[in-house]
Nucleic acid binder design. Sequence first.
DNA 1: ATTGACTCTAACGTTACGTCATAATTTATA
DNA 2: TATAAATTATGACGTAACGTTAGAGTCAAT
Lengths: 254, 254
Amino acid sequence: MPYKVKKVAEIGGVSVRTLHHYDQIGLLIPESITPAGYRLYTDHDLEKLQQILFLKEIGFNLSEIKTMLDNPDFNRVQAMTAHKALLIAKKLRLENIIKTVEKTIESIQGGMEMEKSAMFDAFDMSAIEEHKEKYAEEVKQKYGKEAVEESERKTSAYTKKDWARIMANWEQIYKNIVAAMDNGPSDPQVQKAVGELRQHITDHFYNCTVDIFRGLGNLYVDDDRFTANIDKHKEGLAIFLSEAMHVYCDNQAK
Amino acid sequence: MPYKVKKVAEIGGVSVRTLHHYDQIGLLIPESITPAGYRLYTDHDLEKLQQILFLKEIGFNLSEIKTMLDNPDFNRVQAMTAHKALLIAKKLRLENIIKTVEKTIESIQGGMEMEKSAMFDAFDMSAIEEHKEKYAEEVKQKYGKEAVEESERKTSAYTKKDWARIMANWEQIYKNIVAAMDNGPSDPQVQKAVGELRQHITDHFYNCTVDIFRGLGNLYVDDDRFTANIDKHKEGLAIFLSEAMHVYCDNQAK
DNA sequence: ATTGACTCTAACGTTACGTCATAATTTATA
DNA sequence: TATAAATTATGACGTAACGTTAGAGTCAAT
């Protein structure tokens, strides 16, 4: 009762490609091959696969695993002990990094309080709960559920992917504005994009009222950091955008 | 006072290749280029490099760093918070793995006691302190000194590299024996290699007395795991080696 | 003008597979 | 049984962040 790749892949919870790879590097060579070249695995091969997956799970790389499985002489206790030392070192390093990140967060927040505008704070009062479940799902798959449950209790935020998407949207809005820039700040296309910008901010950060939006428009020309960033998309965009935002806000006020 | 690559590399503690790479992916583009194509960095570039290295240190990848530095709008607090959650998840996963490794060590040791031979135990009573400093040095470079000092207190063992070397030596000895196999177990070349085998074990594992060595020879044919492993080098090597070891021990006893 | 130190680009190597693309084979259906 | 559908095979490129040659041009000093 030999198994073919797909069966083995299902049982082991790995991909067929993985089995091909393990065959290629000589880590798990099927006990026989059909005339047509199909790989046939035995129960013994399955057991070996389990061992491989276990060792991989606890952090050994494939060549280390190969060495261990190829040499029964190999001293597993020593290998495990050495490996454990590495893991502990990694863990301690992570702990230090976490502390650093915490300090960094504090210093950014501290710095922001010293900054001039409440606008910056607004960025941080954003609704971070929204995508929480999605985020949790991702991390759970990567690091196991206990890890996530624990970390859920300690912190929460957007996924990095969420962030990438949000920033990409933002970029797109800017591009749309640049595309219609020659038509002037009052141009319908420009005004539409400006409306989208406000909506984008409302969707992802905080309730962007007309007043706040107007203030943001001022910031785009008053704060060098904003100006420099926006002008990267197009020279003079910051000023143009600021004007367009004022036009927009005036229209909304009516 | 512009700096050329080497200078920047020295100041930043990175390689020239790294700077080339950062230039390539648009992460750190030197402010100017000479007619000959030489990269010229300013003090401002140096500052940016420091930021990059900091963010890298705390675990962001280069594309994330690029996004953060390209967008002053980017909400660093949220990014850091999201990142922190990841780090915590990783840490917890590591802690679980460490526990698993500990359990595995115990179960191996427990299992060994139930095994038939004290010979296996001997493999574990080896002198593990020997290469400690070298090992510590490596890990220290990778994970920082505090981490190592902590882990030093908790465990110690051979480096993985040490292990690879030791196993490679072992393989070589086997090969030498296989090469002279046709001359019979008493052949001087074979006997020389057998002596090296004993020395190798003494050097790296435990004081391999003649009696123990003789017992090991028996094990090579009595224990299937050993037999199968040794025969992988050459069909019949286990039996041959066992005989050769007996010849060797008889000669030593004289 | 030559040497040595420095610089450049180009391109392969690393880890553990994912992801096509193309072709052959086996199994299931009509 | 002929054809379709499922499965399998072998390449070969892509990923992250550079390390490492390799071959060639540039700059400063002798």
